[in-house]
């Protein structure tokens, strides 16, 4: 089995770039595992966990927000709105964001646009917490 190059890029920075064995990504049509020599594919991604397998190493877990993925036979590029490595997640911060968004939504006084944003940040924060709980230290 050959390796495949994985780049994770967010709008704010380039997060990860390395040769890996397998990438498991939360595609919009379901979770998919990508090995090398995959058929060229372009897909949108959902909010979810991204798992990176590398032989002889512990799996690396990322929490990613919406985005999309470009798969080439030997190159995978993930362009995410937000992405964070599981052990980089600050639990307290995620919890604070979670509570704030929840409160904002519960108050019911938000405009449509703000409500959408609050819902998105709630979704992200709870994902962060989930990933951090599962894999974080």
């Amino acid at each position: 089995m050959g390796t495949i190059r994985l780049d994770i890029v967010t709008v704010e920075r380039e997060l990860f770039s390395d040769d890996v064995d397998m990438v498991v990504a939360p595609g919009s049509e379901g979770v998919m595992g990508i090995l090398s020599n995959h058929v060229p594919l372009l897909t949108s991604l959902n909010v979810g966990e991204l798992v990176v397998h590398k032989k002889g190493q512990e799996d690396i877990i990322f929490a990613i927000g919406d985005g999309f993925m470009d798969v080439q036979p030997c190159h995978v590029t993930i362009l995410a709105d937000v992405a964070e490595q599981a052990n980089e997640i600050n639990m307290e911060r995620a919890k604070a964001a979670h509570d704030k968004a929840e409160k904002a939504i519960a108050s019911g006084s938000l405009s449509a646009g703000k409500l959408r944003r609050a819902e998105a940040s709630l979704k992200r924060a709870s994902l962060r917490m989930k990933v951090a709980e599962k894999y974080g230290k």
Partner: peptide
């Protein structure tokens, strides 16, 4: 040299719909 034959999931329109606003945003 991007491969010329691509699979799109779910379909090109949806992918474009995801990619384009994000690009404008960036």
């Amino acid at each position: 040299t991007l491969a010329s034959v691509y699979e799109y999931e779910p379909d090109p329109e949806t992918v474009l719909d995801v990619v384009l606003p994000r690009f404008i945003r960036s």
